[in-house]
């Protein structure tokens, strides 16, 4: 049976952990913008880490469950209701056939993750269901489409009930002022030590220019010593410094290559905080040692049973 979409106005996408192994042909990794919330939603349901979910950005989404199951809701609080009653993220809810879930507008954060017991059953295109609108790839029909009214997204009926929630200490605040740790770039492609020093001491604001490819920030412009670099592969979280001196943090749907000087790379564990930040959010950056954040990420991946 399936989830029948009634309303979907902004950006709701099917996402799994991402499309890996295709960067050499120019395909992006995609996957959940807030990996932390996504992984918790699957963990709460004992799903495989790669199980497909809905990433609901900004709200204005409604759907009816056509069969009993259990869902987990994590990430942003988009003023969701289930059967007319308010529900909050970071926990599971038992679903009865005919229940309607509705998301209104952002209260905290921007992107909510709706996972279902066993995951949504969607045919993979190139080893993933991750929908990339720009690449016409993935999603319900394999063509990168957003989720839209009338779509029926299949899941398996699950009769048993469960209640499980994320411990309070793991729930992020999605504050209006965040600090992101980053690994400084020490290569020839770096924007340079002077630029990195200014960068760390500059308060930034998230601009209106944010999407699944990248987040543009604004602050006191940094003088760029070199105009560009020889185009090279780009890691998720990379902080580019284009000619205007305003940094761009690259997200899951980034292009595979880029030619702007680099300041560094936001840590994988901190990047979800930016993904949930709305325009106007204050951002500060703090340089960290790669070995420290590496071991932290290994523990994190093992905790969520992520295989890669």
């Amino acid at each position: 049976m399936s989830l029948r979409v009634i309303k979907s106005s902004f950006l709701t996408l099917l996402q799994d952990y991402g499309r890996y192994g295709y960067q050499h042909v120019g395909l992006t990794h995609s996957g959940p913008l807030d990996e932390h919330a996504y992984l918790w939603a699957n963990r709460l349901l004992d799903n495989h880490y790669n199980a497909a979910q809905l990433e609901i950005s900004y709200g204005v989404f409604a759907a009816e469950f056509l069969e009993d199951s259990v869902i987990a809701l994590c990430g942003a609080d988009l003023r969701a209701t289930l059967g007319g009653k308010s529900i909050t993220p970071w926990q599971t809810y038992n679903i009865k056939r005919g229940d309607i879930i509705e998301f209104a507008s952002p209260k905290h954060g921007l992107r909510a993750y709706l996972a279902i017991k066993g995951g949504f059953k969607v045919t993979e295109t190139l080893s993933s269901v991750a929908a990339v609108v720009r690449e016409n790839l993935g999603g319900l029909n394999g063509d990168g489409s957003k989720v839209s009214p009338g779509d029926q997204i299949v899941y398996e009926k699950k009769a048993h009930q469960m209640t499980s929630r994320v411990p309070e200490k793991f729930i992020p605040a999605y504050s209006s002022s965040i600090t992101l740790r980053f690994v400084p770039n020490i290569s020839v492609s770096s924007a340079g030590l002077d630029a990195q020093a200014v960068f760390q001491n500059t308060p930034y604001e998230v601009t209106q220019n944010i999407d699944r490819m990248g987040y543009r920030l604004s602050g006191e412009p940094i003088q760029v010593p070199l105009e560009g670099i020889v185009s090279q592969g780009i890691s998720v979280g990379s902080i580019q410094l284009p000619k205007d001196g305003q940094p761009i943090v690259l997200m899951k749907d980034r292009q595979t290559m880029g030619g702007y000087p680099l300041l560094g790379c936001v840590t994988a564990i901190d990047l979800p905080l930016l993904a949930q930040s709305s325009p106007g959010t204050k951002v500060k950056f703090r340089a960290v040692d790669i070995d420290d954040v590496e071991s932290e990420l290994v523990i994190y991946k093992k905790f969520f049973n992520v295989a890669a």
């Binding site: 890996y20 192994g21 295709y22 960067q23 050499h24 990794h29 492609s189 020889v230 185009s231 090279q232 592969g233 780009i234 890691s235 595979t256 290559m257 590496e294 990420l297 290994v298 991946k301 093992k302 992520v306 295989a307 890669a308």
Partner: peptide, 18 residues
């Protein structure tokens, strides 16, 4: 190795940290 992006003057590699 999870992914490789060879370019003009570099090879970018994503490896399996697990």
């Amino acid at each position: 190795v999870i992914d490789m992006i060879p370019s003009y003057a570099s090879i970018h590699i994503t490896f399996n940290l697990v």
